[in-house]
């Protein structure tokens, strides 16, 4: 790991230079709309403040609307045309550690035994520069999910803003390649200071929860009906989740589309026969909790939640998954 001190100007200058060869994507603030990942033309537009993006970085790896192929009927012949993978190299800057931890979890699904070519391609063509959290809000609970708001957790490099400057930690070779040239080595004293700062920042994550060891025991508990009563069956919690990865395949106008699906939707597991094994909110909400804190853990040894707090922050009726998991009657 390389540590460096970088000024904002240096960083912008470098990004300006990199814009020639890379697509640079980063958070951008839209007045009264929120903060969104967008392609950056001018580094000054970047938002590197304390707020969180509405959508997680997952969106840039699992496209919410991915076309697989199109069919054609020409001269009495059918043909399939594959959609070419985008090869543009890109840099995503300003990604929170929890979001990249989400990507590491998605890797277990899309980039291990089974390799999803779209996802893997997106992973390979991307360099991620993280941004540490200086101000986690009360919905954040990353430290309870085995994560951290300051450690790299899968980024190629990570920035920490401190006294109007950035401390840059370069983790991977990919990161070194593009960021190696800028900044100054910090002194030993600064390094020590920084280590103390890091510990302080970790303590800023106030919400602590304990995910139950074995949820399976309470599968039939009336608890799930109680907590899901106010659920609206919308897709906010799943679509904005950095780890939710259920999808739907649709054939549209001779093309095959993969789009997001969410377990909250009424027609999530609706079968062609009309039968739905998850007919009410209770089953569907329980599915969400169990997938995250039981099934995935059994399959991959980790909870499928990074504690980013998006599903709580954006829930239309303030359903709080951290509280629900914490208070589960096990």
């Amino acid at each position: 790991m390389i540590q460096k001190i970088v000024t904002k100007e240096e960083l912008y200058k470098l990004l300006n230079y990199l814009l020639q060869d890379f697509e640079v994507i980063g958070p951008k603030e839209l007045t009264n709309r929120g903060i969104f990942y967008e392609t950056i033309k001018n580094p000054q537009d970047l938002y590197l403040g304390e707020g969180f993006t509405t959508e997680p970085v997952k969106k840039l790896f699992l496209n919410p609307s991915e076309w697989f192929f199109k069919c054609q009927y020409k001269d009495s012949k059918n043909s399939l045309e594959e959609i070419a993978l985008t090869k543009t190299k890109r840099i995503i800057i300003g990604v929170r550690p929890c979001e990249t931890k989400g990507l590491e979890l998605l890797d277990k699904v899309y980039n291990s035994e089974y390799k999803d070519e779209f996802y893997v391609n997106n992973r390979n063509r991307t360099v991620i520069i993280g941004l540490s959290c200086a101000k986690p809000d009360r919905n954040c609970f990353c430290t309870s999910m085995g994560g951290s708001n300051v450690e790299s957790q899968g980024t190629d490099a990570i920035l920490f803003d401190r006294d109007g400057k950035f401390i840059l930690e370069i983790i991977t070779d990919k990161g070194k390649e593009i960021l190696g040239s800028i900044g100054n080595e910090p002194s030993e004293e600064e390094k020590k200071h920084w280590q103390q700062d890091k510990e302080k920042r970790k303590d800023l994550v106030k919400t602590k929860i304990k995910a139950p060891e074995d949820l399976d025991k309470v599968f039939e508990d009336p608890y799930w009906e109680q907590v899901s009563k106010s659920c609206l069956s919308c897709g906010i919690c799943t679509f904005l989740c950095p780890t939710c990865h259920c999808f739907d395949l649709v054939d549209e106008q001779r093309r095959r589309l993969r789009c997001y699906d969410g377990c909250a939707f009424v027609d999530f597991t609706l079968q062609a026969s009309g039968e739905n094994p998850r007919p009410t909110k209770k089953e569907r909400y329980r599915q969400r909790v169990f997938h995250k804190f039981d099934y995935f853990k059994k399959n991959f040894g980790e909870n499928l939640c990074v504690g980013c707090g998006r599903c709580i922050r954006y829930c239309p009726v303030k359903i709080d998954i951290s509280e629900i998991v914490d208070k589960a009657p096990v």
Binding site: P64, S233, C234, G235, I236, C259, G262, P316
Partner: peptide, 10 residues
Amino acid sequence: CIRCYACRQV
């Protein structure tokens, strides 16, 4: 728009 249909559900 991410088509979460929250506008519809609410």
